[in-house]
Nucleic acid binder design. Structure first.
Length: 580
RNA sequence: GGUUCCUUAGUGCAGUUGGUUAACACGUUUGCCUGUCACGCAAAAGAUCGCGGGUUCAAGUCCCGUAGGAACCGCCA
């Protein structure tokens, strides 16, 4: 007799003798007959122990989540339960062994469990027994397998790169690891395998991938953990179209396999167009409500707030919520105003359109011509509601972008089961960092500028664009990538543009710059955020639902209480003295 | 670094303008029960109301601090 999975059985197996192992999900003791729901990874099967059984007393004493072994015969149920796949059969137990009795569990192992997340995180190993979390991990595994097979079949080889790296000055904050052998020196955990994968291209690997763990010591979010996994891809002798084709092919494979969805070719938008129309570089294109520029309507307005914004170089933008004006109360508007205020907008103006008349917060201040122009330009229809923000461009776009998302969620305007991919292209090459008082690379400093912007790198940084691209899915940044610089001259120029002196560049990236002098192939790549992809496939908005052992918002593990303190002896070995 | 919200039996929650025995459900224990599958019935145990301080005759309730959790802004090349 061999070991079977619970869910292997159905009505065709009646009469078979089987040996099963699993956890006691639920015991129903009827006082002369005991039913047990036995759970293993595959599912649940019902066991029956009759009063004349020598195991009857043992069965009545079993506690939830204990591990047992049973032998018995598959038989047809008297009363069938069509709610579960094995509901037509049950196992008449002829042997029962208690392998490991569980103590009282802190929460019910069920997708209906009422336990809050921090309780579940403390007992993560119990939480993992829940159907939904288990299925999420299985789905994640399947995505990895599809990616491995697809990439391998297309000539990519998987190469592991170091976890102990050299700290880098640009980008996210590094997780540092002190060196015992070299006191005072530190390794950094990789923020991504970026430099190594480029060196692999120079090393002649041509097509590389890695399911790579990455680390960034920045604050967490619902979709951000300090350690996460990238499906990291790089290919030589390639341009944007080649790597996009690789990526689209992979996504098509994954969505066909997991969701049985045939994806269309992915649309493309430039970064600037995304900001203008959606107020975000990762727009959710499953719904409309695009941001519209109405600055021109108010170019000669008497409304002082608007005219002041315009004379200060700001803009006035609007979004239109179709057909819901009547359902939105004064109180709702206050809540929506809080949303835009988070992004530094001073106010949220609104207008309602009903019976061919506008009403609302600014209706008395704007002229009839302006009202007419608004109705025309925004194509207002009965019961539409207009939200307006006037401010600096950045404030207007980000606040209305956030408001757009909030409205779509609150009023259920997001279609389900829709997967809208979008390539976002032509990112700015540089952005100004207030903190550092200099321009920094918007993507990373190894990103190639567009050919036409090469001459502007040092003179007109604000108008330089890069060959960087993101793939956005349903409002999530799913991956980021770029065509890389492959000659040391351009690379030096970019370092100079971000105010890195030649000495600094040499000290930090000397080996890298040197490598480009020995025949570097043109290359490009992407890093796919595995967790975000799996989140969307699992239909969850919480990254912790797709990570086996996640950290809380304060980067702690509630189960093992990481990070922990270390002994004086360990610190001494590392040459580290703690601040008092 | 900042903003907002949360913390009451094992779990999830209720707790009114501050007022005397902190309610309910699930779970647990005991007893009864031979076709349950959210089994049923009866009973019982189970709470330093996160922690520290303050206001008050009186604090789960009000105030301050602190710890932990969640979301967001900054940050995340």
């Amino acid at each position: 007799m061999k070991k079977f999975n619970n869910a292997d059985f159905n009505i065709d197996n009646i009469g078979q003798n089987v040996e099963l192992y699993g956890w006691v999900q639920k015991k129903r003791d009827l006082g002369g007959l005991v039913f047990i729901d036995l759970r293993d990874r595959s599912g649940i099967i019902q066991l029956v122990i009759r009063p004349d059984s020598e195991y009857y007393d043992l069965a009545t004493s079993l506690k939830s989540e204990s591990v047992i072994k049973v032998v018995g015969e598959i038989s047809e149920r008297e009363n069938k339960n069509y709610k579960i796949p094995t509901g037509e059969i049950e196992v008449i137990v002829s042997y029962l062994e208690l392998i490991n009795q569980s103590i009282d569990i802190p929460f019910e192992i069920s997708d209906n469990t009422t336990a809050l997340e921090d309780t579940r995180l403390k007992y993560r190993y119990l939480d993992l027994r829940r159907e939904s979390l288990k299925n999420n991990l299985i789905l994640r595994h399947r995505v990895c397998m599809i990616a491995r097979n697809y990439l391998s079949n297309n000539g990519f080889i998987e190469v592991e790169t170091p976890i102990l790296c050299v700290p880098t000055p640009e980008g996210a904050r590094d997780y540092l690891v002190p060196s015992r052998v070299n006191n005072g020196h530190f390794y950094a955990l990789p923020q991504s395998p970026q430099i190594f994968k480029q060196l692999l291209m120079i090393g002649g690997m041509e097509k590389y991938f890695q399911i790579a763990r990455c680390f960034r010591d920045e604050d967490l979010r619902a979709d951000r953990q300090p350690e996460f996994t990238q499906i990291d891809i790089e290919q030589s002798f390639s341009n944007e179209e080649d790597i996009w084709a690789t990526t689209e092919g992979l996504m098509k494979e994954i969505f066909k396999e997991i969701k049985n969805v045939d994806l269309e070719a992915f649309p493309r938008l430039t970064y600037n167009e995304c900001i203008d129309r959606f107020g975000s570089d990762k727009p959710d294109t499953r719904y409309g409500m695009e941001i519209q520029d109405i600055t021109d309507i108010f170019s000669h307005t008497f409304f002082e707030i608007f005219s002041k914004v315009i004379s200060d170089g700001g803009i006035i933008n609007a979004i239109v919520l179709k057909g819901l004006a009547q359902t939105i109360s004064r109180k709702d508007v206050d809540k929506l105003t809080d949303v835009v205020k988070v992004f530094k907008a001073k106010a949220l103006s609104y207008l309602k359109y009903s019976n061919k008349e506008l009403s609302g917060s600014i209706v008395k201040i704007i002229s009839d011509d302006e009202k007419k122009a608004l109705i025309e330009q925004l194509k207002l229809e009965e019961n539409d509601m207009v939200f307006i923000v006037a401010d600096k461009k950045k404030v207007v776009k980000s606040s209305l972008g956030a408001l757009r998302i909030k409205l779509a969620r609150d009023y259920h305007l997001i279609p389900e089961d829709k997967y809208n991919f979008l390539w976002v292209t032509d990112f700015p090459m540089f952005e100004y960092s207030e903190e550092e008082q200099r321009f920094v690379a918007a993507h990373h400093p190894f990103t190639s500028p567009r050919k036409e912007d090469l001459d502007k790198l040092l003179t007109d940084k604000e108008n330089c664009y890069s060959r960087a691209y993101d793939l956005v899915l349903n409002g999530y940044e799913l991956l980021s990538g770029s065509v890389r610089i492959h000659d040391s001259e351009t690379q030096s120029k970019v370092f100079k543009a971000i105010d890195m002196t030649e000495e600094e560049a040499k000290a930090k990236f000397g080996f890298f710059l040197e490598a480009f002098k020995y025949g570097a192939p043109p290359h490009c790549g992407v890093g796919i955020g595995l967790e975000r992809l799996v989140m969307i496939l699992c239909d969850t908005e919480n990254i912790r639902d797709v990570v086996a052992f996640p950290k809380t918002a304060s980067a702690q593990d509630l189960m093992n209480e990481a990070p922990g303190l270390v002994s004086e002896k360990q610190l001494n070995e590392l040459g580290i003295k703690l601040k008092d």
